[in-house]
Computed example of a mutant assay.
Amino acid sequence: MANSSSSSPIPSLIFVSPTIQIKDMSEQNLIGTIQMFNELTGSGAIPDDCDTKAFYSHITNGHVRQLHRERGRLTYLLCVKPAVANVYGFLHGGFVATVAELVSIACARTVVGEDKKLFIGELSISYLSGAPENAEVIVEASVLRSGRSLSVVEVEFKLQKTGKLVYTARFTLYNMPMAKL
Rank of each mutant, 00 (worst) to 15 (best):
A2E: 04
S4C: 01
S7I: 00
S8R: 05
I10C: 12
L13C: 08
L13W: 06
S17E: 10
I20Y: 14
S26F: 04
Q28I: 09
N29R: 14
I31F: 06
I31Q: 13
G32V: 02
Q35G: 09
F37Y: 12
N38Q: 14
L40T: 11
S43A: 15
A45L: 13
P47A: 10
D48L: 14
D49K: 03
C50M: 07
F55V: 04
Y56T: 10
Y56V: 12
H58G: 07
I59D: 00
N61K: 13
G62A: 11
H63I: 00
V64I: 14
V64N: 03
R65I: 08
E70A: 10
E70L: 09
R73T: 09
T75L: 06
Y76F: 12
L78P: 00
V80W: 06
V80G: 04
P82K: 00
A83H: 04
A83M: 05
A83R: 04
A83Y: 05
A85G: 06
V87E: 03
V87R: 05
Y88G: 03
Y88Q: 06
H92D: 06
H92W: 08
H92T: 03
G93R: 05
G94S: 05
F95T: 01
V96G: 06
A97I: 01
A100N: 03
A100G: 11
E101T: 08
L102W: 01
V103W: 09
A106D: 04
A108S: 10
R109Q: 07
E114L: 07
K116C: 15
K117S: 12
L118W: 00
L118C: 06
F119H: 04
I120L: 10
I120C: 08
G121C: 05
E122D: 12
L123C: 11
S124H: 09
I125L: 11
S126P: 04
S126D: 10
Y127K: 12
Y127L: 06
L128R: 13
E133I: 13
A135N: 12
A135G: 08
E136P: 07
I138K: 09
I138D: 00
E140A: 01
V143S: 06
V143N: 07
L144K: 08
R145C: 08
R145L: 12
S146A: 15
G147D: 14
G147W: 13
S151M: 08
V152E: 10
V152W: 02
V152L: 13
V152Y: 04
E156M: 05
L159T: 03
K161V: 11
T162M: 09
G163R: 08
L165V: 05
V166R: 07
V166Y: 09
T168M: 02
A169M: 07
R170C: 11
T172G: 09
L173M: 09
Y174I: 07
Y174T: 05
P177R: 03
